[in-house]
Amino acid sequence: MKRLLAIVPVLLLTGCSLYDTPLPGGADLGDHPYHLTVQFADVLDLVPQSSVKVDDVPVGRVDRIDLAADNKTALVSVLINGSVRLPANSGARVGQSSLLGEKYVELTAPPQPSGQLTDGSVITKDRTGRSPEIEEVLGALSLLLNGGDIGQVQNIVKELNAAMTGNEPQIRSFLSQVDNLVRDLDGQKDSIVKAIDAMNRLTTTLAGQRDDIATALDHLGPGLQVVTQQRDELTSMLNALDNLSSVAVDTINRSRDDLVGDLRQLQPVLQKLAETGAKLPTALEYLATYPFSDYAANDVKGDYFNSDIRFNLDLSALLGPQSPIIGGGG
């Protein structure tokens, strides 16, 4: 005790403080340590000369702690052993060695390391944090034990018991229906997957025709405006169509008996036409080639008509015996 009291006046006389004195058992900084600046929103009771660790291994110490210009950020300057290589996107947090132990700065590795920290690098506030203090843990535990969340859970359990008591058959039926529904959905799994695939193809097609759809929607507005402007004409047209349909229905109703009578009188004619059978097409064939028959049409070769002609020069066959030319009459 006397030796410790003797050291304090010496430190005061030399202008030094206890924070400038390295703690025994600290990290070996080597011959060429480098400086880092770590920004914290809250450093708790971190003090200079505290350890800087990586995976619980001391690699440096806190050199000084300053307040940033915004009066909200703590700037912690640390010294790191020159042989330690850290990624440029490393993080940091204020840790605690035990429940009531000292605070220290823990450097954490990022999920995807990149680059390397060098002398003068800064670990920004968005990559730093701190561990909860013992007071916060005890406060949360006190809230839990004094009717906090446990009391709420108890109320929930009581309400569930009150709701389910006496309703066991209905609950059992409901669970059975849910089981059937899940079983049916599982049985239609392939159809559901096909429907989802079809919907995916539809959305892909719509996405590919997005410009056309946008153009159609852009022109739909002017078209609707034209329809709105011609609403009176469209209404008149629809009313006229309604009147026309009424007149047509009335005309058909009035001429129904006459139409039925005409059809009945037409029945014998159609029956006779049906009885002619193949004779009618034959007659139509002769009618189309009149005055020549089908046989006469066979003599036509190309653009010429060939025929056989006989001349009878026996005038007696034509004039007869009483003719003055043949009989010698006066």
Score class of each variant (00 low, 15 high):
residue 191 S to W: 12
residue 179 D to Q: 00
residue 170 Q to M: 09
residue 177 Q to H: 08
residue 113 P to I: 06
residue 145 L to S: 11
residue 192 I to M: 15
residue 168 E to Q: 15
residue 132 P to E: 14
residue 119 D to C: 01
residue 176 S to W: 00
residue 177 Q to D: 12
residue 128 T to Y: 02
residue 190 D to R: 13
residue 175 L to T: 04
residue 162 A to T: 13
residue 118 T to V: 13
residue 138 L to W: 06
residue 114 S to I: 10
residue 110 P to A: 04
residue 101 G to F: 03
residue 140 A to D: 14
residue 130 R to M: 06
residue 108 T to K: 07
residue 107 L to N: 03
residue 172 R to S: 13
residue 153 V to I: 14
residue 129 G to L: 02
residue 147 G to N: 08
residue 155 N to T: 08
residue 152 Q to H: 11
residue 168 E to M: 07
residue 161 N to R: 15
residue 110 P to E: 07
residue 119 D to K: 01
residue 172 R to G: 05
residue 184 D to A: 05
residue 117 L to R: 03
residue 125 K to P: 01
residue 107 L to T: 05
residue 134 I to H: 08
residue 161 N to G: 10
residue 165 T to D: 11
residue 126 D to K: 02
residue 180 N to L: 07
residue 105 V to P: 05
residue 128 T to D: 04
residue 130 R to C: 01
residue 167 N to Y: 11
residue 125 K to Y: 04
residue 100 L to A: 12
residue 181 L to V: 01
residue 175 L to E: 07
residue 188 Q to P: 02
residue 141 L to S: 10
residue 119 D to V: 01
residue 141 L to E: 15
residue 186 D to I: 06
residue 148 G to V: 08
residue 132 P to L: 14
residue 123 I to E: 02
residue 180 N to W: 00
residue 175 L to H: 01
residue 138 L to C: 04
residue 131 S to I: 10
residue 117 L to N: 02
residue 105 V to N: 04
residue 115 G to L: 03
residue 145 L to F: 11
